[in-house]
Write a protein that binds this DNA or RNA. Structure first.
Lengths: 173, 173
DNA sequence: TTATCTATGTATAAAAC
DNA sequence: TGTTTTATACATAGATA
């Protein structure tokens, strides 16, 4: 074309290639706009230069998302379902983790323990005992702090008399 | 062009419009292919005729999905995120639920309880006590059953002393 | 880059099949 | 519809700024 016909193959001269790209890209977008107007067509066009820079055109009458929905319907090709699948898998994974946490939690609260065998049951018991110890230790710390505060305070100590419930049971252990 | 210049506005004659569409669509796709080859460009092109029929072209070096990923990155526009948003919200919701379960679990095990106030600490304690009661009740049942079985067995008790096998699920420590 | 300048090669409007 | 024909209008390669 122009000052000489060219073969349709990669333009080796980098400068020519870039210049030609720029011209033809403009031409392509222009043509896309024209067919849109002239023929009531819907056109979406995305162009990446070899340097990564992007140019795009989408007809005003339909947005790209709608175009792509239609594309998927008509072509049968999936564009984002693989992405959906990954998210769904993630959801499944977390839900399972969630379920097992819920179960463990119920066990520690003494619920659903009929499904446990003796060994697991004893493990649960020990976990609970350990937790109880720590909770009581902590309560005690709370109270000690409170009492010390009361002593250092001016007024009366009625709040300081409030001791933890701490009913100690002895099971068989 | 051709036998007469035309204005770039909708071609009112339906027949002309369709014929022109067909010609220009072919021209557009041809140009898209050419720039792809000549300039190392990546091009995606989707065209819908007013009758709904679709024509598309995508450069061989990148599939449409990848093109669109790149499009989203570079343009900042969301194509399918509304669809994804729901799934992502679901994931967030479950993750939060998960976190709160984990925290509750740690509390019941006596961990991280320094962050609790006295009232919550006592609530935890009561939950633990309740769980412990139930666990011990259940253990007791186990043993009673076992003892009864031993009594009812004919031979020597050595097989009867064998405690449940305990195929173990872990996590109670 | 982008714009302008030309000579050429292409695309295509209109018509007819 | 799709193709061919043909006259014109456009696009653009290469050079230059």
């Amino acid at each position: 074309m122009g000052r000489g016909k060219i073969e349709i193959k990669r333009i080796e001269n980098a400068n020519n290639r870039v210049v030609t790209f720029s011209k033809r890209r403009n031409g392509l977008v222009k043509k896309a706009k024209e067919i849109t107007v002239l023929c009531d067509a819907k056109v979406a066009l995305i162009i990446f230069a070899s340097n990564g820079k992007m140019t795009d055109y989408c007809c005003p009458s339909m947005d790209l998302g709608a175009m792509l929905d239609q594309y998927q319907k008509l072509s049968g090709k999936k564009l984002w379902d693989t992405k959906h699948e990954n998210l769904n898998n993630e959801i499944d994974r977390i839900k399972k983790e969630n379920d097992s946490l819920q179960l463990e939690l119920r066990h520690l609260k003494g619920e659903d323990i009929q499904s446990l065998n003796l060994k697991n049951l004893m493990a649960v018991e020990h976990a609970i005992e350990h937790g109880l110890d720590k909770a009581r230790d902590h309560q005690m710390e709370f109270l000690m702090t409170k009492r010390r505060n009361v002593r250092e305070n001016v007024g009366g100590g009625e709040s300081a008399t409030q001791f933890p419930a701490a009913t100690t049971r002895d099971g068989y252990s």
